[in-house]
Simulated scan of single mutants.
Amino acid sequence: MHRRPDAARRYRGAVRFVSSFVDREAGYALGVEQESATAYLSIPVSNTLTDYEEYYALTEAEYDALLADAGLARAFAESCRRREQDERLILKPGTDRGEPW
């Protein structure tokens, strides 16, 4: 069972995101962070220095629903790109926050 999204803010060890599903066309991935067992949806972003991923915490029910419904997952990824889900960010971005692809 996945922990609540709040658990993602309490990392003690290395952060290890493992994707279980990737939609390259829509530009998102679903998976579970191994240390906290927190489910996530990630999107690619770029800043002036590098390309990286932003990871948004999901409940277990949300994770299951997004895995089962690609349309719902794509809509959620777009909401993340519009920064409407920033309270769910597992790792908070720095001052040079990237722009979604």
Rank of each mutant, 00 (worst) to 15 (best):
M1C: 15
H2E: 12
H2G: 03
R3W: 09
R4S: 14
P5V: 08
D6I: 10
A7S: 09
A7E: 14
A8W: 00
A8P: 00
R10G: 06
R10T: 11
Y11M: 06
R12E: 12
R12F: 10
R12K: 15
G13M: 11
G13Q: 13
V15A: 12
R16W: 09
V18Q: 14
V18H: 10
S19F: 03
S20Y: 08
S20W: 05
S20A: 08
F21N: 07
V22S: 14
D23P: 09
D23N: 15
D23A: 12
R24A: 15
G27A: 13
G27W: 12
A29G: 15
L30K: 13
L30M: 11
L30C: 08
G31M: 03
G31N: 03
V32N: 06
V32T: 14
E33N: 11
Q34M: 07
E35C: 09
S36T: 15
A37S: 12
T38E: 03
T38Y: 05
A39Y: 01
A39M: 05
Y40S: 04
S42D: 04
I43D: 00
I43E: 03
P44C: 12
S46A: 15
T48Q: 08
T48M: 05
L49P: 02
L49C: 04
T50G: 01
E54N: 13
E54V: 02
Y55P: 01
Y55D: 00
Y56E: 02
A57N: 02
L58C: 07
L58P: 00
T59V: 05
T59G: 07
A61I: 12
E62T: 01
Y63L: 02
D64P: 10
D64T: 14
D64C: 11
D64N: 12
A65S: 04
A65N: 04
L66A: 04
L66I: 08
L66Y: 10
L67H: 01
D69T: 10
D69H: 07
A70C: 11
G71A: 08
G71I: 03
A73T: 03
A73K: 01
A73V: 00
R74Q: 11
R74L: 01
R74H: 08
A77I: 02
E78V: 02
C80I: 04
R82F: 05
R83F: 13
R83D: 10
E84I: 05
E84M: 09
D86L: 05
D86Q: 06
R88G: 00
R88W: 00
I90F: 01
I90Y: 01
I90R: 01
P93S: 11
P93E: 06
P93G: 05
P93T: 04
G94L: 11
T95Q: 04
D96E: 08
D96W: 04
R97I: 03
G98F: 07
E99K: 11
P100L: 06
P100R: 00
W101P: 09
W101Y: 06
